[in-house]
Amino acid sequence: MRTIYIVIAAAIWLTCAANTQKQARKGLKTTEVLRHESPQADLVKRGEYLVTIMGCADCHSPKKLGPQGPVPDMERFLSGFDSAQPLGAYDKNVVKTGQWVIFNAQNTAFAGPWGVSFAANLTPDDTGIGTWTFEQFNLAMRKGKFKGIQANRPLLPPMPWQNYTKMSSADMKAIFVYLKSLKPVPNVVPAHLPPGQI
């Protein structure tokens, strides 16, 4: 009888030991995965999520025709108004009345009472935000200053910078880190055209 108790106890002990080892291996694998996920990678993922739900590509990416209509051209993703394309003609009298705002077919150029504004290149190329510091980006997003320089003109419509003034510092940083991780796209976006020049 005593032998049976010893065998049962040994079986229970071996089962518990095997389960403990399984759990330890699972924990080790989780730890190994976490070690490969750097804080920078986490910021990039968070930034990509924010840029996506904020609709930044709606205005800052040239478009191409997809099965369900225009979609961002991923080869020129977030590179702003395509400077290789002509602006195109539009009825300037309609815009001058202040009752209409006109967007180009790419949704990257905008005519209104302020003149014509062009979506900026947000890629890390030198023609985009490649030389920008986080402080510049933060100033542009929170204070609406062109190129993130205090003495510059305000950002023009339809850029909704006012919506981002209360964004957390962590989210602002994540967006900046994500934008800096993108493929640089050389594209010099034209300067704003004041109302008298359109």
Results as ranks from 00 to 15, higher is better:
143 K>L: 05
27 G>K: 13
38 S>D: 00
9 A>G: 15
132 W>R: 01
80 G>V: 02
152 N>L: 02
96 K>F: 04
152 N>V: 03
132 W>F: 02
159 M>F: 13
111 A>P: 01
97 T>H: 03
27 G>T: 10
25 R>G: 00
129 I>C: 03
65 L>N: 14
21 Q>G: 04
39 P>M: 12
161 W>H: 12
55 G>D: 08
6 I>P: 00
178 Y>N: 03
83 S>V: 11
140 A>C: 10
87 L>T: 02
29 K>F: 05
88 G>T: 12
176 F>S: 01
168 S>M: 02
147 K>I: 03
179 L>I: 02
3 T>M: 13
35 R>L: 14
109 A>M: 04
132 W>S: 00
72 P>A: 05
70 P>T: 09
10 A>Y: 07
80 G>E: 05
85 Q>Y: 01
88 G>K: 13
42 D>T: 12
119 A>E: 11
20 T>E: 05
124 P>G: 04
57 A>E: 13
97 T>E: 14
48 E>H: 13
111 A>T: 04
179 L>N: 07
124 P>D: 01
106 Q>E: 15
38 S>R: 06
45 K>S: 08
113 P>M: 08
12 I>L: 13
112 G>I: 05
87 L>R: 05
171 D>W: 07
62 P>Y: 12
16 C>G: 11
157 P>H: 14
145 K>G: 10
151 A>H: 08
90 Y>A: 04
17 A>D: 15
92 K>P: 03
97 T>R: 09
63 K>C: 03
104 N>W: 11
16 C>Q: 11
131 T>N: 15
106 Q>M: 09
48 E>W: 06
31 T>D: 10
111 A>I: 08
111 A>C: 04
151 A>Q: 13
70 P>A: 12
22 K>E: 13
141 M>A: 01
12 I>A: 14
100 W>T: 13
97 T>Q: 11
61 S>R: 09
2 R>D: 06
190 P>R: 14
84 A>E: 07
186 P>H: 15
13 W>T: 15
139 L>I: 02
71 V>P: 07
20 T>L: 10
49 Y>F: 09
198 I>W: 04
150 Q>E: 15
132 W>M: 02
127 T>A: 12
4 I>S: 08
41 A>D: 05
190 P>T: 15
37 E>N: 04
16 C>V: 11
26 K>D: 08
146 F>E: 14
160 P>C: 03
71 V>N: 11
93 N>M: 09
45 K>F: 06
45 K>L: 08
184 P>S: 05
131 T>R: 12
29 K>C: 02
33 V>L: 13
63 K>I: 01
132 W>L: 00
74 M>F: 08
6 I>R: 09
198 I>K: 07
139 L>N: 04
157 P>M: 07
55 G>N: 09
11 A>W: 12
9 A>L: 13
56 C>N: 09
108 T>G: 06
35 R>T: 04
153 R>H: 09
196 G>W: 07
34 L>V: 02
152 N>I: 03
44 V>I: 15
79 S>R: 04
170 A>R: 06
54 M>W: 06
95 V>D: 04
19 N>A: 11
14 L>N: 10
75 E>P: 00
48 E>F: 03
68 Q>Y: 05
83 S>C: 10
88 G>H: 12
55 G>Q: 07
49 Y>L: 07
130 G>C: 10
